[in-house]
Design a protein around this nucleic acid. Structure first.
Lengths: 229, 229
DNA sequence: GAATTTTTTGACCGATCGGTCAATATAGGT
DNA sequence: ACCTATATTGACCGATCGGTCAAAAAATTC
């Protein structure tokens, strides 16, 4: 057993479980909890249905495991900000990070969306607890920025929801977006163009003073696309 | 057969069908097409399951009827705009209209969202056709506005998607929003506050020159809440 | 190589799925 | 009253649902 310990699992088992999770994420995100079936997941992995239950225990256990996995990935990105931070860089980072996150885990994001559409039966605790605290703390800081004259006195909660919705739109409504654009998927250029646009509109719209030029941003000029009139 | 023909229906039949549509809209929006069952709908209406099929023909027919109904309601609101229109009032109207629409038909909006999450199997024609044309025509006008110096040279498509997502967020993610706000539902004040915020940020963010003051807005000052720094 | 544990899999369970059908009840026209 | 068209409903169909189980197979341990 080589004593590697921790939550040990044989590497083969871990590989199988991962492949199941990937397949399940697709199916649940497309059809929701009720609409997904273990048979569809099993077919996608290429395993008999009984095997899914052997590894995951039950449909519900598999589902909440996926939700937790997605929440964990989400938490990894919740950087710390303080009232002394520069609003421009923080908001800009927030927008771009959320944008990247949605592209990295499109199925997980859709899974979340479907869960919330269904009334968040498995996530109500998380929404009213952890996530709520996260929003309040960020809101408090944004309020201080407004008080310090660093930006307009907008309601921080609506601002957070705005960034949230605007970025997630491109992953959860990818079918709509690509249908309208007449393209199968968004290109790298699209994503950069969208990010620049959101950065431009939201920062300018909130009256955020341009970031201190002594910034450590190696990302070239962010306003390469959207130019002022 | 009384030869009345056409779409006439006895008033009692129409009442029953409407009640079925209302119930079905709730169930489909929560659980998606696959996750919804005729039995759940029947229970909600208080009718035997066979009756639902008698009036609606099949699950799929009921579903597409709901989608079409929602598309019709949506089209009623697609006002006409021209390059001569004032960008500020048009964008402001667009934001507020979408906001009201989502509040008026929350279940229908969620139904759309679930359909698109599932990959829009029943709506791909609509998205790549009617809706796509609508977006292109509006985009062309917005581009003219930019060329005329009435606003920044932002990508019109991203702007449309921004307004789209930001407003719909509050109906489709109502479970998340109310969970975070710690409230059961959004109040009238919330909605006005959100609308004002979006108006403020998006118009200012796009560099839209303030509307001609000879506007017919009886809605008091829109910037009552969000104040400049 | 025997013993033991882990994995695989088809068969099967009761419940529910969308949908059909025939028997019955109701309503409207004459 | 009679006839016809519409509406109502329980019973039923094959398919699929989530989940169980036991027997066989494979891997692991000693």
């Amino acid at each position: 057993m080589t004593a590697v310990s921790a939550t040990h699992e044989s590497p083969s088992r871990e590989r199988i479980e991962t492949s199941i999770l990937v397949a399940a994420e697709e199916v649940f995100s497309q059809h929701g909890y009720r609409g997904a079936s273990l048979q569809m997941i099993a077919d996608r992995v290429g395993l008999p249905k009984a095997n899914i239950l052997y590894y995951m225990g039950s449909k519900q256990a598999l589902y909440v495991r996926l939700l937790n996995r997605m929440m964990r990935r989400w938490n990894e990105v919740l950087e710390d900000i303080t009232p002394d931070s520069d609003p421009a860089t923080v908001l800009s980072d927030f927008i771009r990070t959320k944008m990247v996150l949605g592209q990295r885990y499109p199925e997980g994001s859709k899974l979340f969306a479907a869960e919330i559409l269904a009334g968040a039966p498995f996530l109500s605790d998380y929404l009213g607890g952890e996530l709520r605290d996260w929003v309040s703390s960020r809101a408090a800081i944004i309020r201080q920025w407004s008080a310090q004259g660093k930006m307009d006195a907008v309601d921080p909660r609506w601002l957070i929801f705005l960034i949230w919705s605007a970025t997630q739109h491109y992953t959860e409504y990818s079918a709509q977006v690509s249908g309208i654009l007449g393209r199968d998927a968004l290109t790298e250029d699209d994503l950069e163009s969208i990010s620049s646009f959101l950065e431009h509109v939201i920062l300018k719209g909130c009256g955020v003073t341009s970031p201190a030029p002594n910034n450590s941003a190696p990302k070239s000029s962010a306003d390469a696309h959207s130019v002022e009139k």
